[in-house]
């Protein structure tokens, strides 16, 4: 039994359980946060991307016992109350989602990416956005990231 104190979406949170459990399963199965998705379990697809201390991380590959004091943000906590994050708004405006399953991970990856690349080029996006989408929405994701970048810069 491992005890971990952390923050999830701005609220203090205590974990008591198997320290080897990946964060993904704690979020989905214990914390009821179903927006973070399972895709591969080996950190290869990015469907489970969340923010840990502001960085995009694939939550299927992070054990709970490494998260003492960590600040976790999931897709459910990305918006500021009713006001959507610029990336979420851009995703709607560019009509990115088809099935939508990978998109929470894509959005979390893009939101973290834009902090490091506020004015990204196609090459920056190609190098840093590595999440899988089986509907093949990449062309629209690229446009949405650029749209979000613009709106974050003018905000």
């Amino acid at each position: 039994m491992t005890r971990v104190s952390l923050t999830i979406n701005g609220k203090p949170h205590q974990f008591d359980g198997d320290g080897e459990m990946p964060l993904l399963w704690h979020l989905r199965e214990d914390a009821g946060l179903k927006g973070t998705k399972f895709g591969c379990g080996i950190g290869a697809c990015g469907a489970c991307t969340v923010h840990i201390d502001g960085a995009a991380v694939r939550s299927c590959s992070v054990s709970m016992n490494t998260l003492e004091g960590a600040d976790i943000v999931t897709i459910e906590g990305l918006a500021d109350g009713a006001r959507l994050h610029a990336v979420q708004e851009a995703w709607i405006a560019e009509d990115v989602a088809q099935c939508g399953y990978c998109q929470a991970g894509q959005i979390m990856a893009a939101a973290a990416f834009l902090k490091d690349y506020p004015d990204p080029t196609d090459e920056d996006i190609a190098e840093n956005i590595t999440n899988l989408c089986r509907c093949g929405t990449y062309v629209r994701i690229r446009k949405a990231i650029k749209r979000a970048a613009q709106s974050l810069q003018t905000a």
Binding site: L33, K34, G35, I75, E76, L78, W91, A97, Q98, G100
Partner: peptide, 19 residues
């Protein structure tokens, strides 16, 4: 017409079977 389900998708609502 943009995807009407997009607001649920981009906020991570539990709309899939696995959820």
């Amino acid at each position: 017409q943009p995807n009407l389900v997009a607001p649920d998708i981009v906020t991570g609502k539990p709309i899939f079977g696995i959820d």
